[in-house]
Amino acid sequence: MNRQVICTNHAPAPVGPYNQAISASGQMIFVSGQIALDPNTSEIVGTGDVTIQTKQVMTNLEAVLEAANAKWENVVKVSIFLKDMNDFATVNGIYAQYFPADTAPARACVEVSRLPKDVLVEIECIAVI
């Protein structure tokens, strides 16, 4: 299996021992969970505002996908981690702007007790190109 690290300055640098994404055999892209970090400042955006945070997360995911030569339509699986399941409708509304219902990827959404840097949402995905 060929394994390639995907890295872009247009998404936040990892805050631990992991990479933004890994391409496996040039076909599968495993994108690490993205949080609402501004890639230019490494600061959290939208503290306490799930709408702003979700938009930043999607922007970060898109940057990593683009660095791997993938697009939203290549995404086959998404995992969403929420600090509060009461934010589900808000996050889902923003998410739906990127994935039309008829072609949306498989997805899981779970509430967790805490996320890195105390953000409200984290999203990871898998794409196939």
Rank of each mutant, 00 (worst) to 15 (best):
V75P: 04
Q34W: 04
R107A: 13
E62H: 11
P116Q: 06
I6N: 01
F30H: 12
V119R: 04
L61N: 07
V121Y: 03
D84V: 00
A24W: 14
Q20Y: 06
C109L: 04
I80R: 10
E124T: 03
Q34T: 04
V112T: 01
D49W: 09
Q34G: 03
Y18D: 02
N92I: 03
N9K: 10
M1T: 04
D49A: 11
A127L: 12
L115S: 02
A68K: 12
D87A: 05
A106N: 05
R114P: 00
I52A: 12
I129M: 13
I35M: 02
Q4E: 12
V112D: 00
E122S: 15
V128D: 01
T51A: 10
M1S: 09
Q97E: 15
F30P: 00
N86R: 06
R3M: 10
G16V: 01
S79G: 06
L37R: 14
M85H: 06
P39A: 08
T90P: 02
Y18R: 05
N92K: 15
T51H: 15
A24T: 08
V128Q: 08
W72F: 12
V110C: 01
E66N: 11
D84R: 03
N86Q: 09
I6H: 03
Y95N: 05
I22K: 10
R107F: 12
Q34I: 00
I129N: 09
I22A: 04
A68I: 10
E73L: 08
I35P: 00
N19H: 12
I129T: 12
D87M: 03
L82W: 02
R114V: 01
A96G: 07
G26W: 07
V57C: 07
T90I: 13
S113G: 04
M85D: 00
I94T: 09
V91M: 14
S25Y: 12
A108F: 08
V112S: 00
E73N: 15
V75W: 08
Q27Y: 09
Q34D: 01
I129D: 06
R3C: 05
T103D: 15
G33I: 02
V91N: 05
V121G: 02
I123L: 05
E73C: 14
M85Y: 11
P12H: 14
Q34H: 05
T90K: 13
V91L: 13
A96P: 09
L37Y: 13
D38F: 10
L82I: 01
E66R: 15
D49F: 09
I123T: 01
T51E: 15
